[in-house]
Design a protein around this nucleic acid. Structure first.
Length: 493
RNA sequence: GGCGUCAUGGCCGAGUGGCUAGGCAGAGGUCUGCAAAACCUUCUACAGCGGUUCGAAUCCGCUUGACGCCUCCA
């Protein structure tokens, strides 16, 4: 018996626009693909939000006992054009000006990407394939699509014939677009003269002489189109049809639409059962944009070294903030919002830390098993982490009441409560108990305990000047004393 | 212009055809030498205008506004 036999997930499927009961293709196994970053600059904070949401999905599926193969690619080809228009992107421009090897750019930002994700306590994906490592697979895929009559070659480049495809298939079913509408609304752009129709997209591009990243192919020395790598790598590792495909909302069209088209054209079937799209992250009510300066890097947010926020925020606070909203909603990153989350997060962690110190009784005044199922119900409902957190706060309240002697719990329920709290807080949400880590050093505890004792003595002697001095100066040092019925404890942060 | 998504209390953010979301902030109380913490109580909402319904913030239509995609983008 596995947890997934008892807990039934519903997933909002972008393809149908509805929540659907989740059923994996192979019982007990889940294949999940998420479009990864293009490593040409520091990882974008919005990108982090998307991956954070899917990290939570990954964690929950694993928690339920599924064997999950989670594939998240690194796009390291196709976009590193040495002939990019000037002023488009600072880093590409800089790389071009300094004549750095594209692979140096790739390496630098892949390392940055991994560093940031590990700071945020991401679980690594099962496979992290790169586009340049799968050129052969992509070329094979193109050959198949040509053979099936859905692509054509012009001047060494190969394009996907959207119009031809749409005669037998439905191009636009994911993004709810109609080809006719697209035809009437396509902007005229230069340099597309090779295409039969503006809606066609490149499967292979012949490289201009100054283009550095290039590979030989039956059609030309060139590089693959950017939609192709995901089709090649997802199906290579997950099969021609797999369970979940995720990505940012902005990838829905054209990227994911094209993936469906490529797969149907090459393999005769739609690749994905459940399409999931994470919504955008805003900064102070507006979309992040480098050109307007309304943007902040993950490391700037973590260090507090930026012009938007009053202080530094810890990785878990940012994770908590993210989990307090639905992955399908636009999330607005603001100082007030982070401040509120930070306080709530610490309150939750303080309650969890109390779990080690509360004692059990003969009865429970709280239905722990019902509460536990409520937590599962929240996550089962399209990974509704905000509701889960609301339930975690219910438990926090209960724990505090037990500590205050206003509620009681049996030892059996205490064990269950602790297990469940830990599982959801740390395993599923991926939060980390920062205060415990910091104060976990026994030497600090010992030193503070001495100060607590001295303060107690001062209070007993009615030397409140001294006792308050101890309390206030510890507070300034980031150590907060908490007087309770059972004596004084302390927390850091 | 086309397609799509969304509009919730001081702020952030769930959810639902009739029954408390939750967090932060505010107010009152308990506790305390005073605080803090914790606990208890409390405040308030569903953009506007129509319609369906016994009943709608929840369904439908319109209006207004915000956002996304249509061009690299998480």
């Amino acid at each position: 018996m596995h947890l997934y036999d008892q807990q039934h997930i519903k997933i909002y499927n972008s393809l149908s626009g509805q929540k659907e009961p989740f059923k994996s293709i192979t019982e007990g196994y889940v294949g999940m693909y998420v479009c990864g970053p293009t490593v040409y600059s520091n990882v974008h904070l919005g990108n982090v939000r998307t991956f954070m949401s899917f990290d939570m999905v990954f964690r929950y599926l694993k928690h339920l006992g599924y064997k999950v193969r989670y594939v998240r690619n690194i796009t390291d080809a196709g976009h590193l054009e040495n002939d990019a228009d000037a002023g488009e992107d600072k880093i590409t421009k800089k790389a071009r000006l300094e004549q750095i090897e594209p692979m140096e750019v790739v390496q630098r930002y892949t390392v940055d990407f991994h560093n940031i994700l590990s700071i945020f306590n991401f679980l690594p994906p099962s496979i992290e394939p790169t586009a340049t490592g799968h050129i052969i697979e992509q070329i094979e895929l193109i050959s198949t699509i040509i053979k099936n009559g859905f692509a054509y070659e012009v001047n060494g480049s190969v394009y996907f014939d959207v119009h031809k495809f749409n005669e037998t298939n439905d191009y636009g079913k994911l993004s709810k677009r109609k080809l006719d509408d697209l035809i009437h609304n396509t902007r005229e752009l230069d340099g597309q003269s090779d295409k039969k129709n503006p809606q066609d997209f490149a499967l292979w591009k012949k490289a201009e002489p100054q283009h550095i990243m290039r590979w030989p192919s039956p059609w030309s020395d060139g590089f693959p189109g950017w939609h192709l790598e995901c089709t090649a790598m997802s199906t290579k590792y997950l099969g021609d049809r797999f369970d979940i495909h995720g990505g940012g909302m902005d990838l829905k069209f054209p990227h994911h639409e094209c993936e469906i088209a490529q797969n149907e054209a090459a393999k005769g079937q739609s690749p994905v059962n459940y399409w999931m799209h994470a919504n955008m992250l805003h900064l102070n009510g507006q979309r992040m944009s480098k050109s307007t300066g309304n943007t902040v890097n993950p490391d700037e947010l973590l260090s507090g070294d930026n012009k938007f926020f009053s202080k530094a925020y810890s990785p878990s606070v940012i994770r908590f903030f993210n989990a307090q909203s639905s992955y399908r909603s636009v999330l607005d990153l603001t100082d007030d919002g982070l401040l509120a989350s930070e306080k709530g997060f610490h309150r939750l962690m303080d309650a969890i830390n109390l779990l080690d110190n509360i004692s059990s009784a003969s009865t429970s005044t709280f239905n722990v098993s019902e509460w536990k199922q409520n937590c599962y119900d929240a996550m089962n409902d399209d990974f509704n982490s905000p509701i889960l957190i609301a339930h975690l706060f219910d438990a926090a309240k209960y724990i505090n009441q037990i500590k205050d002697g206003k509620a009681s719990i049996t030892s059996e329920d205490l064990k269950l409560l602790k297990q469940t709290m830990y599982a959801f807080t740390f395993d599923v949400l991926g939060l980390q108990n920062e205060s415990k880590q910091e104060s976990g050093t026994d030497k600090l505890s010992a030193a503070v305990d001495i100060l607590i004792k001295l303060r107690q003595e001062a209070r007993a002697n009615k030397d409140f000047a001294l006792s308050d001095k101890i309390r206030d100066e510890l507070a300034e040092a980031g150590i907060q004393l908490k007087d309770g019925k059972e004596g004084t404890t302390f927390t850091t942060n």
